[in-house]
Design a protein around this nucleic acid. Structure first.
Length: 107
DNA sequence: AATTTGACGACCG
DNA sequence: TCGGTCGCCAAAT
């Protein structure tokens, strides 16, 4: 049987796809739940949220934000801390999407 | 098996 | 700009 090594997650393919995308978001940049759903081509924003809530602890979850620019619901302070430390474009309590939004494949 | 919930998003007033 | 409402799509209860 295959050795699982040090990386625990991988409960299913969809989860893996989502986490893989989040892993690629560069520091100081962000993606919305909808962006990720569209990019992986399955499910929707809410499904991405479900995956992150359940299995997002091991990836840069603070770089995944809502479409209105607000950071993750319930963890806003920690997310803003981290993003600020990365030099992300922030305006008040929300991210400047027009500046910080990142698209994989176009990097 | 049916209903409610959730780290969402577009629309509208 | 802000809050209310409805639509979406699985997971959890």
């Amino acid at each position: 049987m295959p050795d699982r090594g040090v990386e625990p997650p991988a409960e299913d393919d969809y989860t893996e796809l989502v986490l893989a995308v989040v892993e690629r978001i560069p520091p100081g940049r962000v993606m919305t739940y909808g962006d990720i759903a569209e990019y992986v081509g399955r499910g929707g924003p809410r499904q991405v949220g479900t995956v992150m809530s359940r299995s997002g602890a091991g990836v840069p979850w603070w770089r995944v934000i809502r479409a209105d620019g607000h950071p993750v619901r319930g963890l806003e302070d920690r997310a803003l801390d981290r993003l600020a430390a990365e030099g992300c474009a922030i305006s008040g309590d929300r991210i400047r999407l027009s500046v910080a939004r990142w698209n994989p494949g176009a990097d």
